[in-house]
């Protein structure tokens, strides 16, 4: 493998670890159980909510939707469970992404006065419609441009980070190039 190929692979890997969310949108769910209702918030990686996404709620051991609806402007919806068990929820934004989450409802949920509990889960979004996904990729990229890992890191640290990466790559290329040179010299000798 030539140095050039190695460098290109390195660049691609590096780019991927910064932008993995663009390739497979992770959908996060934040569920809050607070009798008598369960509130679910659906959002992309960090902040962008799934606005006006189709929601289907399935009661435990049921294939028919218990309730259907849409998320609000903040990606939030709520429902009132009637029985204990695992309630399955499917959120589909109809722009090419969907995610599933299940909420387990135990017996003491229905007992009055129980304190609410919050739980956060992350589901890797499945791509339901590749064409729509491609069409809307630009929109999501805009929404998620703000959510790269490095946003919260101070500028000075980012500068040092970038410089050390550049020096590191330079050193790697330098080392392998020198080794090549030495090998060819040895072969000649």
């Amino acid at each position: 493998m030539t140095i050039m190929k190695k460098v290109i692979i390195l660049f691609v890997l590096f780019a991927l670890c910064f932008n993995s969310k663009i390739i497979a949108h992770a959908i996060n769910f934040e569920t809050e159980r607070h009798a008598p209702a369960v509130t679910v918030k659906a959002f992309f990686s960090r902040s962008a909510p799934l606005v006006n996404a189709r929601v289907e709620i399935y009661a435990p051991e049921s294939e028919q939707p218990f309730q259907t609806g849409r998320t609000d402007q903040k990606g939030i919806f709520a429902f009132v469970p009637t029985v204990t068990g695992n309630w399955r929820i499917r959120v589909d934004d109809e722009r090419g992404h969907a995610g599933n989450v299940s909420v387990s409802i135990s017996g003491n949920f229905f007992e009055a006065g129980e304190a609410g509990e919050t739980e956060e889960t992350e589901e890797t979004g499945e791509i339901t419609d590749p064409a729509a996904e491609a069409e809307n990729a630009a929109v999501y990229r805009e929404e998620e441009a703000e959510t790269t890992i490095l946003r919260d890191i101070p500028l000075a640290y980012r500068i040092i980070f970038g410089l050390s990466l550049i020096f590191g790559i330079t050193a790697i290329i330098y080392a392998s190039r020198v080794r090549q040179e030495l090998n060819s010299r040895n072969r000649e000798a």
Binding site: G162, I166, I169, T170, A171, I173, Y174, V178
Partner: peptide, 16 residues
Amino acid sequence: PEEIPKIGMTGAALFV
């Protein structure tokens, strides 16, 4: 090989 450090340093300068 002797060109590589120069390229890296210039790249770093451009970056900043």
